[in-house]
Design a protein around this nucleic acid. Sequence first.
DNA 1: ATACTAAACGGACTGCGGTCCGGTTTCTAT
DNA 2: ATAGAAACCGGACCGCAGTCCGTTTAGTAT
Lengths: 196, 196
Amino acid sequence: MRPDVPLGAPHERSDAARNRERLLNAARDLVAEFGAEALTMDALACKAHVGKGTVFRRFGSRAGLMMTLLSDSESEFQRGFMFGPPPLGPGAAPKERLIAFGEGRIYFVLENGELLKAAGAATRNRFDVPATKLSHRHMEVLLREAGIADPWVMAMSLTYALDPERIVDDVRVRGISPTRLTDSWRELVTRLLRTT
Amino acid sequence: MRPDVPLGAPHERSDAARNRERLLNAARDLVAEFGAEALTMDALACKAHVGKGTVFRRFGSRAGLMMTLLSDSESEFQRGFMFGPPPLGPGAAPKERLIAFGEGRIYFVLENGELLKAAGAATRNRFDVPATKLSHRHMEVLLREAGIADPWVMAMSLTYALDPERIVDDVRVRGISPTRLTDSWRELVTRLLRTT
DNA sequence: ATACTAAACGGACTGCGGTCCGGTTTCTAT
DNA sequence: ATAGAAACCGGACCGCAGTCCGTTTAGTAT
C-alpha cells in the first residue's frame, strides 16, 4: 500500500491529494494556454478552485511550482546523462560526454525554456534548484577525470555558461541560432580539455 | 556651463536637479546603512522627501537606480581595461589581458556585489545593462584576436561565467575563496587560448 | 509684471508573490 | 458511533515594484 511515500510519511490526506491533482492540471492548462511567464499564483488558485494558501503549502513558492512542472522532463534528461548510451551516458571519454551534455542541455533548455527561466528567476540561489546541483556534480566528475585542477569551480563556470536565461535570450532575443550555440560549446570544451 | 548635458538637452529644471541630488544622497545613505538588498523604492522616496513617482521618473526602475549608483566605480573599472596599463589595458597579449580582465572583474564584483546583484536581478535581460555590453564587446575583441571561431558567442559564455550572482554566491554562500575563483579563471582562459 | 506651457511632482492605485491564522475536514483510537 | 487531534483549507492581509493622472511649478515669451 501507499506507494512511494518516503517511509513512515504520515499519509497524505485525501483532500490534499485531490487538491494537488486539481492544481497540477490547472497549472498545466494555464502554461499551455498563456505560457509559464504569465502564470500567476492567484490565477492558478482561482482556476483550481482552491485557496491561495493551499497553492503555497503545496509548492512552497512559484519556483517550486515550476520545478514540479519540470520534474518529469528533467528526470528524463538526467537519466540520459547518468544511465543512457554514450556519448551522453557513461562509456565515452569525458570530453565527448561533456560536449554531448552541453548540447543536450541547450536543446532541453530551448524546449522548456519558459519553465526553467521562471524556476530560476523566482529563487534566491538558483544553485539550490536540485537539478542544477546534479548537473554541476556531473560536470565536476567529468572535469576531474579530464585533469582539471579545480573541477568544482570550473563546473560552476560551465553551469553559468549554460544558464537558461542566457540560452533562451541568445536564441529568442539576440537571434543566435541553436547551432551556433552548440558549435561554440563544442569549441569551448574541446579547447578546454585538449591534452598538451 | 551645464557640463555633460548631451547637447541641446532641454535644460534640467532646478527642482528636478534638487530632487535628483536629494535622491542620490538618500540612496547612498540607505545603502550604506542597510545594504543594497534592503533598499526599497518607497523608503527611498520617503527618506528623500519626494513622491514615489519622482523616483521612478528619475531612474526608471530599481535596476536603473542601482546602475546609477554604480556608474562611478564602473567607469573606473572600464577605463582600466580600455586605457589603463597592461596586462589589463592595451599592450599585452589577448590571453594575458583576458586573465587580467577576469581577475579584475572578480574583485570588482566582490566589492560592489550587492549593487550589481540588485541591478541584474531587477532587469529583464541583464545583458542590456550597458556596462555588461561593453565588457562583452571587450572580451569579444580579445577572443577574436586569439583566434576563437565564434568570439561573440564565446564572449557570452564567459560573461555568464563571471556573473555577479555566481561570484558573490560562490564566495559568500558556498565559501569559495576569491583566490580559487581567480585561479580557476586563469586555468580556463589559459586552456581556452593556448595554441596547439 | 503677467500669462502661458511644458515639465516635474506626488501619492493613490494596481498586480504580484508570499504569509498568517481561525475555521474545517480527515483520519485514528476507543 | 464518537471524540479528539493533526493536518489541511482558504482568503484576508502585507510589502514591494511599478503606473497613472490631476495638480503644481519653473522657465519663457510678451
